[in-house]
Write a protein that binds this DNA or RNA. Structure first.
Lengths: 210, 210, 210, 210
DNA sequence: GATGAATGAGGTTTCATTCAT
DNA sequence: CATGAATGAAACCTCATTCAT
């Protein structure tokens, strides 16, 4: 019956809203206190629900954190990076935009942080596995987007076609990360993001004659 | 009196030995179980001492882990990298050696891992601060070693003198890290270390005529 | 719905009962072993619940002890003293009753004991603060009850109106305490409670002509 | 040999000095942190000796605290009160002096505090027992001093001879304590020491004609 | 489906005390 | 005799998770 459908939709909607609240609270607490000091109780308290209720939505703390931090981050970033990719400009310009956007977004720092913060508990492993499966598609989309820019650059004669695309991507991501997550001791000195990017761009540029 | 000296030495020696045992055990357990599941009790049990004894040597779990993982790693790496730096070869060859050595050594992955695993607890922050103070000297030594190679390369005309040395170092370390610590999802595809290095070397190479 | 009410009441009731059990066990263990050797584990064991469960009811050991010893004692005493106050007899007779009742009840000894046993830890201070806020009302009631008796005595010409009521109360309580909590060394000799009381009563009695 | 004697005396002297340092440190730490948070390690650290060394002087923490707080306090107080007793003035004046001196000295508050802070551990009991034996003599001296003043007062017609001396002493001490150690909740209002004393003095005063 | 309540498992840390040197 | 080092015992507390209602 249509009545049933409406009720169902309503419930669905409420469920979605509550879920969203939980995710937001989790993200918030995590941002404030870090992974270890983020407790399910506090998240529940902020939402104003019982802790047990969270378990109706997420199988474990790890699963929640993965959903709240990794997945949401990822979706936002993919959307934004895609915006840059489909925009105007040559490959170099696009990579430049992407580079500075990702550095600013703190995307990679958060990923690294949560990966290691979760440690090696079986549950964390399981949450990761689930996450990876769920995100694989979007990860591919992300990688492909970048790959297309790179290949566009190769086709346009901007980048050296002799360098494999994965190598270029890894280099790009590596430098973004270098700029995002510092090694308190070895990487502490500040370096202009542009300078670092230039090294990269020059490294992948088409060789004049060689 | 010589008797005193002997006694003193004996104690010193025993203390050192026990300390070494603790460090080894800590490293071992950490390697097996990760930070969170490394418990003081287990470390003590492996050494065959009382848990409280560890606290006679280290103020906290954090302090122990920092000493066991970060400091020792650091000292080893500095020693070995220094060996490469003072050895034969031009700058490019040295960087190549260093690159592959550091990737293999897993040095940076362990650093990142422990930094984030320790989280943001006040105690961890304190342990970090202490660590940083203690390691600052050796960190400078490390950075200087690399800087000299880079500058040697500039002087010999291998590298572009227009690129600031810190930029080169950050790029180098960034790529080593990219190769060492993978983002389960975005960096998962394997790339030959050499290819990545070549992008870097080309990026910092002296420009023929430009 | 009435079903809800029943469920709610049931839970409420069970919660109250369990809470009561915890309080009783805490009081018991405390009476047997003193503050320091009263452990949360033992209390839980006596109730037959998990230690963590206690923490669902009380924020800390201090809070539990305050609730178990100070609050309950206080409520009982106020109830009983009130019974005396509203009963028959002139002020002198009432104070006599109250005096001997409070000495017998051990009320003040327990208070002193727990105040000092808890020491000066920040947590203890906090528990105290909380306790004081919660008990302020009942403390006022208690003081007021005594004050009324004293003032009745003044009005009836039994006590010297020139002596301020707080002074009389402090003297009364001081002597009750003197009789309740002995200084192992200086107060060890036994003295009939009545004799002590007489000194007090005479001290506050209306001066014939002076 | 006299040389031996000298050496012995020297050692004795050093031992005494060290002991004194330990006592002072114990008193200090106790004053700052209270009983529970006074650790043997901290006392030793302040003196600049090894913790184990304290055990050459005191059998246990309790024994040390008793010696450092109770005994020393007691000796000082007896000396000073004796000074008042052998001085000039009639019994009332002397008691007035003693009253205000003891209130100011905090003597009784400290006693109560440490008695209860030590709790009921067997070691504490043992320390107490030892303490009591050692202090019995001086305690008698103290009591006797006060008793003499009281009896002087009776003889001089100031105090009522019908009231037994122990009763008077207990009343006196009780009121001093009432003024010294407050019950955070019931005794919190301030009362002039003199007023309280007057109640007492009036209470024990010789009855004109009654 | 949400909740209140309970829990088990552990975890770090503290400290008085002892013993060989 | 003083000491450095070690220790055992315990204590409090946290937290993710489960289950009856």
């Amino acid at each position: 019956m249509s009545a049933d459908v409406v009720v169902y939709s309503l419930r669905q909607k409420q469920r979605q809203e509550r879920l969203e609240l939980i995710l937001q609270a989790a993200e918030q607490v995590y941002a404030e206190k870090g992974y270890r000091d983020t407790s399910m109780d506090e998240i529940a308290a902020r939402v104003g629900i019982a802790t047990a209720t969270i378990y109706a939505h997420f199988a474990s703390k790890e699963a929640l954190m993965v959903a709240a931090i990794l997945e949401r981050d990822f979706q936002r970033i993919v959307r934004d990076v895609n915006g840059i990719c489909v925009g105007e400009g040559n490959a170099t310009e696009k990579l430049t935009h992407i580079f500075s956007f990702l550095v600013r977004s703190d995307f990679f720092r958060r990923r690294v942080q949560i990966f290691y913060a979760m440690g090696d508990t079986p549950q964390a492993q399981h949450a990761m596995q689930t996450y990876k499966s769920a995100m694989q598609e979007i990860a591919h989309a992300f990688t492909d987007m970048l790959a297309q820019v790179v290949e566009q650059g190769k086709a346009d004669g901007e980048f050296d076609p002799a360098i494999a695309t994965p190598v270029m991507l890894k280099g790009l991501i590596g430098l973004i990360r270098a700029q995002s997550v510092s090694d308190q001791l070895l990487n502490h000195y500040e370096v202009p993001a542009n300078d670092l990017l230039h090294v990269y761009l020059h490294g992948i540029a088409r060789h004049q004659r060689e």
